[in-house]
Simulated scan of single mutants.
Amino acid sequence: MDIELTYDMLGNRLRKIGDATIAYDQLGNRPCTLGTWALEYDRLGTRLRRVGDVQITYSRWAGLPLTVGRWSCEHSKLASRLLRIGPYELGYDHLGSRVRAIGALEIFYDRLGSRPHRVRLSGEVVSLSDDLLLALFLVLHWQEQASSAASRRE
């Protein structure tokens, strides 16, 4: 099953994951809803703290996600790269910079390789479960944040 990732007219903000619409705040800087789930941020508005009823915790110093609801997150020791979110193992491209898989989800990027545009769910599954939608959104969100932070440093 293929799931389309839809962007706004300028192509810089993810607007839909399959049937789940993503709405942005008034400034258009950060997502405020994913489907029916409200997204809440910390006081500074920098880190996503909650998706619907699911709370997200981060490490104190490195700011790496530790838990997503009942799921724990696993990171590599040296690169501080996310390896697992709950039951879903993450796979990266050969450079290790882009997530190519989340469990049974395979992520395809545009021709320039900068933006995911389609996700394939392997097997006989006919719809994206809420758990996989949450994992996919978080991974794409954190990947975008890391990319934006890297470009600001340059």
Rank of each mutant, 00 (worst) to 15 (best):
L44E: 14
S151D: 09
R60I: 03
R100W: 00
R70W: 08
G113D: 07
G96P: 02
S151G: 01
R13L: 13
Q26K: 08
H141V: 09
L112G: 07
F137K: 08
A146Q: 14
A38K: 14
L132Q: 12
V99F: 00
G96Q: 01
I17N: 05
S114H: 14
I56A: 04
C32D: 14
D19V: 06
I17C: 12
G45F: 06
A149G: 02
I17S: 04
K77M: 08
T67F: 05
D110V: 04
A146C: 01
S148K: 14
Q26E: 14
S148G: 10
T36C: 15
L82W: 01
G18T: 06
E144Y: 05
I56F: 10
I107R: 00
L34G: 08
G52S: 05
Q143G: 13
R60D: 15
R100D: 00
R115E: 06
R60V: 04
E4C: 08
G69E: 09
V68G: 09
H117N: 07
G28C: 03
A79Q: 13
C32W: 03
A135I: 09
L134T: 09
A135G: 13
D53H: 12
H117F: 06
R111E: 13
H141G: 09
H94A: 13
A38C: 11
R100H: 00
D2V: 10
R84P: 10
W142A: 01
H141C: 04
S114Q: 15
A146N: 04
G11R: 09
T36S: 15
Y24Q: 01
L133E: 11
Y58N: 05
A23Y: 05
P31E: 10
V68K: 03
Q145C: 11
D130Q: 13
G96C: 03
L39Y: 05
G91C: 02
R81Q: 11
K16Q: 14
R153Y: 04
